[in-house]
Computed example of a mutant assay.
Amino acid sequence: MTDLSGATGKLVVVAGGTSAAGQAVTRALLSAGARVVVVGSDAGRLATLRQDAAPAAELLSTELCDLTDEAAVAELAGRIHAVHGSVDGLIHLVGGWRGGGGLAGQTDEDFRFLERSLTALRHVSRAFLEDLSASPAGRLAIVSSTAVARPLAGGANYAAVKAASEAWARAVAQGFAKAARDAGTPLAAASVIFRVTTLSGLEDTLAGAVVDLWRGDPGALNDTVIDLSESARAQP
């Protein structure tokens, strides 16, 4: 049965969660009563996040992991399962920006740096796919860019990686839908793409949208693109 009771009690992994956006998402999920595991690559930032979340410390755990290392991600999933159980949500916030200089400035070095976010998405989504598919309210969400719809020469590397990430998230959505059809059960999991022009100033908007994922019908949410920049402009 589909669970639309909200984020309370759900186990949510926030990948790349030490950024300003990750901190906002973590705070919002904790306030909604979710159990949150924040994964990052900087031990100092993870420690600061734990200190700042002191009022809800019992709901928060942190994990140090290089999400581009497939073996390390498999070990991470094993630790989370052993300590916390099955995962209900995966919020992928691994990102970064490099660009400029037109097409001539789109270096292989910059592309490989940006590609790390896609690699991390592939690893963590596969590691927790079974959990999300089995959950009564499984949710996967990524943050993409409006540049996918209107790529510029100076951001071609960035737009290409974001487009690939969206394709991966949509493939996950198709997998969720097919699994439900094959089992003859209502769709309970959803894969969602959030697009922004920039996350700066939209951290709280993103955080609210993430919490709302557990209030929405998965059939309406699955395989959707939500433009948070447009939503923010529409607000009075």
Rank of each mutant, 00 (worst) to 15 (best):
A153N: 00
L4D: 10
H81M: 09
S135F: 00
V210G: 04
A134H: 04
E166M: 05
V39P: 11
V143S: 04
L46P: 07
T8E: 05
D217E: 14
T48D: 15
A190C: 11
A82Q: 05
A234D: 12
A137S: 14
E109A: 15
A32I: 01
V37R: 04
A180I: 13
E115W: 10
A137R: 06
R79C: 06
R126V: 03
S41W: 00
L221D: 13
A169R: 01
G17T: 14
R112G: 01
C65Q: 11
L67T: 05
L206C: 13
S41P: 06
E115R: 10
S229R: 09
V196Y: 07
V211S: 04
M1L: 11
G101T: 01
A77F: 14
A127P: 08
A177T: 15
L132D: 02
V161K: 01
K162F: 05
L90M: 13
S19H: 03
R181M: 08
D223M: 14
E230W: 11
V36K: 01
A104Y: 05
K10L: 02
T26N: 01
L4S: 08
V225D: 00
K178T: 11
S229Y: 11
A188V: 10
A156E: 00
V37C: 07
G6Y: 06
A232K: 07
L213G: 04
S200I: 03
R150W: 06
A171H: 09
E75M: 13
S61H: 03
A232C: 05
T205L: 04
W214G: 05
G201I: 00
P136S: 08
S31P: 00
L67V: 11
I193C: 05
D110Y: 06
R233L: 10
L187P: 00
M1F: 07
A15F: 13
L221Y: 03
P186N: 04
L90A: 09
G201E: 00
S41Q: 03
R122G: 09
V192H: 08
A120F: 13
G9Q: 00
A232Q: 08
T48N: 09
G105F: 01
A7H: 03
T119Q: 15
A179T: 12
T68I: 06
G95K: 08
A183G: 09
T62Q: 14
L187E: 05
D217S: 01
D223V: 12
R45S: 11
R170D: 15
A179K: 13
A232H: 13
S41K: 06
L60T: 02
L46F: 12
R139T: 05
E58G: 08
R181C: 14
G33P: 03
S191K: 09
A220E: 12
V225W: 05
T8P: 03
R27V: 10
V38A: 08
L118N: 13
L199E: 08
A232N: 13
A173E: 13
A127C: 12
V14Q: 00
K162C: 05
K162N: 08
A156H: 08
E63R: 12
T146F: 01
G85E: 15
A47E: 15
A120Q: 08
S165K: 06
P151Y: 11
A141K: 10
